Computed example of a mutant assay.
Amino acid sequence: MDEPTGAELLGTVARYLRETLLPKLPPEAVFHTRVAANAVDLVRRQLELGAGLETEELARLRALLGREGSLDELNRALSERISAGELGERTPGLMEHLWATTLAKMAVDQPAYASYRRELELRQGEGAEPSGG
């Protein structure tokens, strides 16, 4: 039998904090335990989704900018070109890239956020593939 992944272990810790420990804690410890469980879940989602989402973002940036580079380099170049007015909302692919990147970050940081969920539902209804949601 395979060992559990780091993400699976973190999921187990978060469930333990919420389902077993939290109901037994005094009120003054509940908030901090929820914060800890949320932090564990955030790291779990980073492990599960992060590399794939970064790969997708890098591919979009390379296509949009027509050049190679690291994720940081290409994001910096994108920001500079937007700031200089070279790229804007009418640039083919730019707005979709920005939305996809935002939704990917939300998938890791705040997947239960109501506006994020609505946008995913809207995009799925339009046939667009959400990134990492």
Rank of each mutant, 00 (worst) to 15 (best):
P27K: 13
G127C: 08
E54A: 13
G93M: 02
A29M: 14
A107V: 08
A84I: 01
T5P: 05
L17V: 04
L61S: 02
G85K: 00
S115I: 05
E57D: 08
R67A: 10
R45K: 12
R117I: 11
L65V: 06
V13N: 04
R18L: 11
H97T: 00
T102V: 10
L22E: 08
G69C: 09
V30F: 11
L53D: 01
P23A: 10
R62N: 06
Q110N: 11
L49G: 03
E96A: 11
A36T: 15
G88M: 01
L53A: 06
A104I: 05
T5A: 10
L87Q: 07
T12K: 10
G93D: 02
E28M: 11
L94Q: 04
M95C: 08
G52I: 03
M95T: 15
G127N: 10
Y113T: 11
A39H: 14
Y116Q: 10
L64I: 03
L42N: 12
R117C: 08
L98Q: 05
T5Y: 13
P27W: 11
A114Y: 07
Y113N: 15
L74A: 05
N38V: 03
D109Q: 15
G6N: 05
P111L: 11
P23K: 10
L17A: 06
T33K: 11
K105V: 04
K105I: 01
